[in-house]
Nucleic acid binder design. Structure first.
Length: 195
DNA sequence: ATGTCGATTTGCT
DNA sequence: GCAAATCGACATA
């Protein structure tokens, strides 16, 4: 059961198809004694230095994004708009700055903890949408920057959840109008949920 | 050294 | 429907 994704998975070089493969995988965190997890339902691919929407576009390297240049399988957490933590999965080999942004999940384990973190009084929404929401629900923060995704604080499991091709919606990425033509690339993958 | 803007969410008018 | 919140990266001087 509960199989962590192998290192090999993260080292693949096709970040776009990897982003699609992450749909249906389970993102888990074990933080301060609280275990929470959720099925990944929305991802966006950021294709390193060749992608204008990527932080590493043109080979840019800063303290913030340097982790993207490392080997795949690490967590790239960063602060956006000064208040939201966005969680990314670093992929590809060292020297390549590819990453996948996790935008939405369906809560699985630790619902009570998630409710508390999200300050929900009664019922939790069936799924959590929005990159900042995902991190707050799972308790991800800047302390997870650069963490190995096969460690015991944060990792991704393959629970063999089947995703039908026809339930995957593909479209342009969000909030990156500044990226010009690259903003139109169909690199956003949404698992169309219908329960 | 200072100013603008961003891979956004939330709450109020 | 719109504006506030708020920090790091990057451009300008």
């Amino acid at each position: 059961m509960n199989q962590k994704l192998p290192k090999k998975f993260y080292l693949q070089n096709d970040v776009v198809s990897l982003a699609q493969k992450l749909l249906g995988k389970v993102l888990c965190t074990h933080i301060l004694g609280n275990f929470t997890s959720g099925i990944i339902t929305e991802t966006e691919a950021y294709a390193g230095m060749g992608d204008r929407a990527c932080h590493a576009y043109g080979g840019k390297k800063t303290n913030r994004n340097q982790i993207m240049y490392e080997n795949g399988g690490l967590a790239y957490v960063y602060l956006c708009y000064g208040l939201h933590h966005l969680f990314n999965v670093v992929t590809n080999q060292k020297g390549q700055a590819d990453a996948i942004l996790i935008r939405a999940i369906i809560p699985l384990d630790g619902i009570d903890v998630i409710k508390q973190r999200r300050k929900v009084k009664t019922k939790l929404p069936p799924y959590l949408s929005g990159p900042g929401v995902v991190t707050s629900a799972l308790g991800i923060n800047l302390g997870h920057y650069g963490k190995n995704l096969r460690g015991n604080e944060i990792w991704i499991e393959d629970r063999k959840i089947e995703i039908a091709q026809e339930n995957i919606k593909i479209g342009p990425r969000i909030g990156i109008d500044y990226a010009g033509a690259d903003a139109k690339l169909p690199w956003r993958f949404v698992y169309n949920l219908k329960f």
